[in-house]
Design a protein around this nucleic acid. Sequence first.
DNA 1: GACGACGACCTTTTT
DNA 2: GGTCGTCGTC
Length: 803
Amino acid sequence: MNNILDNLNNSQKDAVLYNSGPSLVIAGAGSGKTRVLTYKIAGLLQEGLPPWSILALTFTNKAAREMKERIATLVDPESARRLWMGTFHSLFFRILRAETEAIGFPGGFTIYDTSDSKSLLKTIIKEMGLDDKIYKVNAVYSRISGAKNDLISPEAYASNGDRIKQDILCKRPLIKEIYLRYVNRCRLASAMDFDDLLFQTNVLFRDHPDILAKYQNLFRFILVDEYQDTNFSQYLIVKKLADNHHRICVVGDDSQSIYSFRGANIENILNFKNTYPEGKLFKLEQNYRSTQTIVNAANSLISKNKSQIPKKVFSEKEMGNRIKVLTAYSDLEEGFMVANKINEIRLSVFDSFNDFVILYRTNAQSRIFEEALRKRNLPYRVYGGLSFYQRKEIKDVIAYLRLSLNEDDEEAFKRVVNYPTRGIGETTMQKIIHAASEHHISLWKVLQTPAEYGVQINSGTAKKLEGFRLFIESIHQQVGAKNVYELTGQLLIDSGIQHELNADQSPENMSRKENIQELLGGMHEFVASRIEEGNDAVFLTDYLQEVSLLTDQDESKNEQGERITLMTIHAAKGLEFKNVFIAGLEEDIFPSAHSLESDRQLEEERRLLYVAITRAESVCVLSYAKSRFRNGQNNFTRPSRFLKDLDPHLLDYPTEAATSHSNDTSSFERESSLYWKSKNRFAEKSSSISDYRENRFKTSAWKESPAPSPRTMQAGSPVSATGKPLKRLSKPSTNTPATNANEAFASNTTGLKADSVILHERFGQGRVKSIEGVGDNAKIEVEFENSGYRKLLLKFARFTIIE
DNA sequence: GACGACGACCTTTTT
DNA sequence: GGTCGTCGTC
């Protein structure tokens, strides 16, 4: 242990060695938090605490896995393996499954993922005859999830004045009723959603003091990572478990709290002292990850937030380069600029592709970077988005497995009852669903004896239902005898899925087959590794648990070779990269339009950028575009307000701006106005916002007329430095939009010749290499500064000649 | 009951 | 740009 301690600085050492009471470790970004946690656990093990008496809660499975690996090398693999280390959801799933009798799920239960939950809510909203325009599934889901995370049952919800008042204000007074029905339906289906795993753990501990005592005695030391992102439900579980011995250590950073949308409550970390008055506070303030410039820039940003625990994060590494800001004309060009910059850095310092990450606020932004990287032949890997296990074909197979294990699983039932098609359509299903809710039983029970529950069907349909029932039962019977891999292989054949996918050679089918093959491969690996570890019995539940509680980060399929990483900032939490690109620093994206209602949310967005910047070791690049294609329209954007929050001395704006350093306007405004003064010939004069609105309005009206797509027309509008569009050369009228639009946006090509420099609407600035053809067929070849060589049809190209 | 065409709505972020 | 749900036709 002594030599281990040599690797720690004094504050880390203090935090590691204090084990006699509760402690809060405020760990600034890059301050060696994981190191403290692993060394602390290693120390506890060396003190003689058995590994199974240590409960270590992490934010992702990946974090747990990595920490276990480090402990395995520090102490020994066997101890590492026996630690109770994992996410809240996976560990308490384990406990709930061991206590199924006590929680009233005697036959076990399955886990509903978010899409199952939403699908059930949709069904309930429909059944209640409510307007799904008002009772939007997402809104209802988040209300219910929020209630569960605050440990409010449907009954408590109905008598909770505040919540009811809010619902009435939002014109959704019946959420309480939906909530109640939802909970009942989940129970009928023997299903728990993500929030239930925590909620039911609380119920278990509340109603069964003996069981609580058992786990209180088992867990002699408790550690919680990312404590700033725990919710009330999690807080209470931890508090109860630690109640007797108070041997608890929570680690976190209030500046990195970014999950309030999921119920995370920053108060948990801020109020730690109230929960444990004798608790000790440790602060890790030295950042070992990033250059001074990056740390200072991040500090300058976060200092704009009001509520935070005072701390001063510092770095003693080199100053490093300033943070570069890239300004693009369009989202498309932003992609090219980032790709080019990556190339440039790689060529000058020979970094591996693994040293690069592109971070964005929303998953939808990934596409544009994927395209740009593909065109440059740069290898990349995208995390998140539509995950593997969310694909239709995968969900279908999993649904069969779920149903065969828990036949009451309503969502799984609905998913596969008619896939592949076996003639059980909507009408029959409606009858079954109706009968089920009438008699308060599961769909499966109705299926067993439809007539008994008054389901009126003809004999043909009855036969088909019977066939489905027998099929599911036959898989059910094989569950004990076959492992997941074998079972699924059989299932694919017997269900007819195999046959269906072999029916034609369409590309969709080919890719589905590939995915299913991959799924089988994963199952094989799962089974093999369990057997390797000495588990001779590999349960289907274990497999299903694992796939439903996987996190995005866990999906890294260790693809060989170096790759640039693309992910949301949320997914990047806890990671670090030598070179970090943060894209889309625009109003309404970052900060998100949804965050503008309250300071609290805006501060969370700011913390999110703080998290993003502090992922960087040596290079951090910010980028934004002046126009962006979103929701089927090209819109003008304004640079993010956060750019102004960053210390301007630490930023490096494009060269145009470098020449002018006069007044107090922020750099990007300087840069933009200069740019537009010198180069923009799109417009004669600038227009007001009301003109802009008018144009937008007209555009949507145009949608009803046959001709050009809104994208084409919107894309033609020139934009001013502030993001306001400039007046068009000719005003479009609403009657004959096509003609006017074409007139308005046709580029003026007078004087265009080889070697002309043009400013293209989407590709930015470039030099004309050649012109070929005449009239409508004329093409130009252009070398763009950031977008490379392109051939453009003169007729459609949108650009201005600069020189 | 199956399937294709069209339109509405969409986007935060995730266990 | 893409998904999901609805509607109309076979």
